[in-house]
Every structure is written in structure tokens, then in C-alpha cells.
Design a protein around this nucleic acid. Sequence first.
DNA 1: GCCTGTGAAGCTATTCACAGCT
DNA 2: AGCTGTGAATAGCTTCACAGGC
Lengths: 210, 210
Amino acid sequence: MYSHRTIGRLSLYRRLLYGLAERGTAYVHSHELAGLAEATAAQVRRDLMAVGCPGTPKRGYDVRALIESIGVLLDTPETQGAALVGIGNLGQAILAYFSGRRPKLTIAAAFDIDPAKVNRVFHGCRCYPVEKLGQVIRRKDLRIGIVTVPAEEAQQIADRLVRAGVRGIVNFAPIPLHVSRDVYVEHVDMTMSLEKVAYFARHDRKDSRA
Amino acid sequence: MYSHRTIGRLSLYRRLLYGLAERGTAYVHSHELAGLAEATAAQVRRDLMAVGCPGTPKRGYDVRALIESIGVLLDTPETQGAALVGIGNLGQAILAYFSGRRPKLTIAAAFDIDPAKVNRVFHGCRCYPVEKLGQVIRRKDLRIGIVTVPAEEAQQIADRLVRAGVRGIVNFAPIPLHVSRDVYVEHVDMTMSLEKVAYFARHDRKDSRA
DNA sequence: GCCTGTGAAGCTATTCACAGCT
DNA sequence: AGCTGTGAATAGCTTCACAGGC
């Protein structure tokens, strides 16, 4: 429906708008939001066309209304739950960060093989044994998976997530996942990010942001 | 010089090639590598044009030679060192993963404010107090920064990294960093990734990979 | 026959530039 | 005067399609 890039940036704009709203800012111009988001004013206006929340030439965009409109686009009416697999340092970092932050998008279950972690609660999220993965995901009707297991286990976990009904996966493992075409995968490849930075820190004297 | 996307994928190809080499595979065809990388054969061939390591129609690409050639492009002759700031769960996950993995790219120093962490060694990497950030980075001549601190501190840390001579930053904080145009920033935005997946898990029935 | 290397075509994303509004 | 909304232009990225080689 909307472009991948636009949806991603709307997520970012919303976060920045929350910050403005907290500080009591009622209206914002496209160039101001662009400044915060490290984007251009034209880009911001283009993206905001998608949400159908018009601004006025004089005052710009109504911050509250914009947050609301982006929410209509990005959120579901009911809360969406995600399943996180692999409670290592990375998994715990993610649990800590998302815990209670988004009302419409929460990590509703976590899984690990380590018996020492099973049945404990991490940042408000209960840890189940991986054997119960399918069962718990189906029972809680979770449609999103977060893979924070080592490379060797990632594909197998992805397969099980998909079999349990997951329709989208955030993959933090350092290898690409092979899933059926109707499952959306976002590969967060930290190694790639670091190697890119290492390369462009040497070569790039021009502008470039990601 | 080369496109951002191509450089990123070369990093991925190299990791996949290491895997093949370990398993004793000597030659690989573009469509095989594409399969592993979730890309197309044409894409792989296009990317490999950049590295100037020709394949043969019969056997494809020589795995060892390809790893070597990608290395010439991505690596520096001398080891590049990176500084990681913020040894929370995320910082530790990154330290653990990169520890000793890339000979030409290592995390050479870590920083934290917590006195309990200072002067300890995490996954082979010594933790310094943040006050010594500029001093240590200059002494070790580090050009890459990894920001794993909370949102509120991220910009201030980025400023200090840049002042100390860092030319590229991987930013894991959930806000964009404002730096001078000649510093390359890669923003790894986990919130954006999760919200994108939440959106496309609902909407996208077509192909899409990131 | 099936592969690589690559010009050309096709797509997608971003930026320009300006009409219209206040 | 300075902003938004947007068609048109541009830039960047991917795929097609095929010549050339084994």
C-alpha cells in the first residue's frame, strides 16, 4: 500500500512528535520535523501526504492530530503482540526498551532454551521454554516474531514461528532467513551496519544518512 | 565510490562465503549465492562487478578468491578500531558478537558511566570511564563509534565522538544524530524495524525483504 | 546448455519548483 | 513572506535480456 521507506519514516516522525508534544509544542513545520529526523522538508511533506493530515501554511502541522493520524495508519485497533525468541543480552535489551512503551504493540511472550531462564519474568515478559513456542503463539494469537538467537538456530526458529502463524519477523541473527513469500522479514544486520560504517568512514566525504 | 547498498551486500556475501569455505565449497554460482543472501542472481553479479573478481561460466566464482577481493575493498590494510559507548545489555551483546570475529575490525575500547563497570573487561574489551573518551580515542586513533546509550545521552556522546576524531558512527539509540556532513552515520533503528514489521505483517502479501 | 558480464530498460525514491493559501 | 501540497524532473537501484565463453 505505502512505500516501505515512508512507513519506516512515519514511525520515526511519530516518536519525534511525541517528544515535541511532551515539551508542549502544538504545531510543527515540515522543515522543523525534517531537521529532527535528518531528512528534507520535501521528504517530510511527501510522507505526510500519505497520512492525510493536512497542515496549514501559517502554522504547519498540528502535532497532536498528526500523532493521531499516523497512529491510524500504523496501529491496529486491538493491541498487536510479538513473540521474542532468545533472551540473551540482545533479547533483554529489546525487552527492556519496548516494555510498556507502545500500548498497541507489546512483546507478549519470550522464549529460551536455558532452563535457568524459563518461567522467569524479564521486564514484565514471561519466558517460556522453546518447546512451547507454537502452542503459546497460537494461544495468544501473536503475528510478529523477533529472532535474537545465534545464527545456527535462527532458520529453525523462523520456520517454527511461521508454522505457528507469525506473519512478520524482525531478524537480528547475522544470516538471512528463508521464509515463504507472504511473510515479511526485516533483517537488522548489525555486522553489515558496522562494516558499512567502517567503509564509508574512510571513503565518504559526501552526505549520507541511514 | 560504490553504492551504499552494494557495500552492505558485499559484507553479507563475504559472511556467507566464509560459511561456504568452511564447509569446503570451492566454487559458487551467482544464483547459489543469491539464494543464500535472499537476493537475485543478477543483483549478485552486478555487486560482484564492483570487486573485480571474475567468475567463469563453468564453475562460477572462486570462493577463496572472492573473499579475498571483497576484503581488499572492505578492509583496511591495518586493523580499524572502533569505540563502543554504553555497556548495557545491547552494548554487551555487540561486544560479545564482534569479539575476535573480524581481524581487521575490532572494538578496541568501551566506555560507560557506571563505576561498577569501569576498568572491567567485557568480552576482551576494556571499559573506560566516559570522561576519558576523547583521550582514549585519540591515543588509540579510533575512527569508528558505536552508540549504545539511552536516547537522552546519544547526541552528547556523538558530539564527543566526533570531536575526538571519529568519522563514522553506528547509532543504536532511538533518535537520529545530528553530526557534521563529513561524518557517516548509520542509524540502526529497532523501533522502526519493529513498527515496520507490525505494519507489513498486516498489509503486505507481496514479496519484500530488508 | 548454462553460466558470466553488462548495456539498456524499468522501477522506486527523492528532490525540484511552483501554484495556491493565509 | 513563507508555508503546504504536488506534478514534473532527477537520481538511484534493480531487473531484463542477451552477447560471449566454456
